[in-house]
């Protein structure tokens, strides 16, 4: 994925704007429970951990690790040319806080489960897509 692919973008709503637009300011943002400090994702009107109802937007570090991945070779969507890497990453701040994403700036054969990665954003229209790249050691 050397050039920006054509992405089908998320529909921005009041509930998800913090997530999809936080990247314009360089931040990966989630809802966080004021009572127990758990991050809640996908956005919901209640904390799944303690059932707290007061949730506020909070930024995380953007550091994560690769839980699993696939190197996709099939052209599913016009303008999104394979091969590209799809992964599930776990955000450093909380076990189980996960995103599906693309790993970029990494040769597919260099990928491994457990690899530390960090967020970067790809701006499309009003949406900043959070992607991840390896952390150089």
């Amino acid at each position: 994925m050397t050039e920006k692919p054509t992405r089908i973008l998320p529909a921005v709503t009041p509930e998800n704007a913090h997530f999809w637009q936080g990247g314009a300011e360089g931040e990966l943002r989630f809802l966080r429970c004021r009572d127990c400090s758990s991050y809640v994702h996908p956005p919901a009107p209640v904390c799944g951990h303690c059932l707290g109802r007061e949730l506020a937007v909070a930024a995380v570090s953007g550091r994560a690790q690769v839980l699993t991945y696939t190197v996709n070779h099939q052209p599913w969507l016009p303008g999104f040319d394979p091969p590209y890497v799809i992964a599930i990453v776990e955000i450093e701040e909380q076990p189980g806080l996960r995103l599906t994403t693309n790993i970029v700036n990494c040769a597919p054969e260099a990928l491994r489960i457990g690899m530390p990665v960090r967020v970067l954003f790809e701006q499309h229209e009003d949406v900043a897509i959070p992607l991840f790249e390896p952390v150089e050691s």
Binding site: R7, A11, P42, Y84, T100
Partner: peptide, 16 residues
């Protein structure tokens, strides 16, 4: 544009 649960996968080409 994609909403609902698919918004978390489709933008990343995870379309199958």
């Amino acid at each position: 544009r994609v909403g609902g649960p698919m918004q978390w996968t489709i933008p990343f080409g995870a379309a199958s």
